[in-house]
């Protein structure tokens, strides 16, 4: 079972909810923080026995002794990561998507793929939660390789909860891919609805069952509820605005410590979608 917690709009409560769902999970569960550009779920967990490993992607290295400057590598690269200047090939490593096309097409076998470090995976344990986090290195632009590495590190035999990056572009899609269900967390505001709509369109294209959770449900208006009705979208849970919860979050505590009454509804929600 793999459940992704996504949103469209940032700051709606994905991480808060992911952590709480992991905490009420009956038995061992893996929580993957795939928001690798700013992972923060670990703030809410006291992690024991942490391990770390680097994430590498293959990028081209050109052997100038063999290179004839024919330009086939630059021509096949869809991301302009290679350029030919005179008889020299220049590599723009940060633009490379690691497809390997350049190494294959080079008639002189002058290109080899070498590892390039892009981020870190951290693992740790907190109660029933096996936690994994990806962290993209500062200055790197591409999150998906790090997200894929986190997901690969998970044990496919154990249940997985994925705290996704916001938005609906490659990082979000990489994070939700392969999930059995997607929880879309939103807020009852124009911005919340706008980005929820984008997220709904995206997960419909991916053909993954999904439902909506409205966080701080009484802080705005009724537009998200109406949208869900109109679109026949399952509205799974509404969490009212609460100063107590906000205070707990600001101290790095789980919402369940401030609002233990949420635990049964979260368990019900998991029952419903499992």
């Amino acid at each position: 079972m793999q459940i992704a917690i996504a949103s469209g709009k940032g700051g709606t409560g994905k991480t808060t909810l992911s952590v709480a769902l992991a905490q009420v999970w009956d038995g061992p569960v893996q929580l993957l923080d795939c928001d690798v550009e700013e992972p923060n779920a670990s703030i809410f967990l006291s992690l024991k026995s942490q391990t770390e490993k680097r994430v590498f992607v293959p990028v081209p290295a050109v052997d100038s002794a063999r290179c004839t400057g024919c330009g086939k590598c630059a021509a096949i690269c869809q991301f302009n990561a290679l350029a030919v200047a005179g008889k020299t090939v220049l590599v723009f490593t940060e633009l490379c998507h690691s497809c390997g096309g350049c190494a294959r097409i080079c008639p002189e076998k002058a290109i080899t793929e070498v590892p390039f470090s892009v981020g870190t995976i951290r693992q740790g344990q907190s109660g029933n939660i096996q936690f994994m986090e990806g962290r993209l290195d500062v200055g790197r632009a591409m999150a998906p390789p790090v997200i894929r590495a986190v997901k690969k590190a998970a044990d496919p035999k154990l249940p997985v909860l994925i705290d996704c990056p916001p938005g609906t572009s490659c990082p979000m899609i990489t994070a939700v891919k392969g999930s059995d269900f997607i929880l879309l967390v939103t807020e009852p505001t124009p911005f919340g609805l706008h980005d929820l709509t984008l997220a709904v369109e995206t997960v419909r294209l991916l053909n993954i069952p999904f439902g909506v959770i409205i966080n701080r449900s009484d802080a705005g208006d009724n537009r998200v509820v109406e949208y869900c009705k109109r679109e026949n979208i399952r509205l799974l849970l509404q969490i009212p605005e609460s100063r107590k919860i906000a205070e707990a979050c600001s101290r790095g505590e789980s919402i369940l410590s401030a609002a233990p009454e949420l635990a049964p509804s979260l368990r019900n929600l998991l029952e419903e979608i499992r």
Partner: peptide, 29 residues
Amino acid sequence: AAQGAGIQAAQNAASTGAAAVISGHFGPK
């Protein structure tokens, strides 16, 4: 282009045989 426009433009300019280029600004790549 999603990325690498400057790189591609530089190769385009080079392929014309130009010895100099004039533009408003030039990025690092």
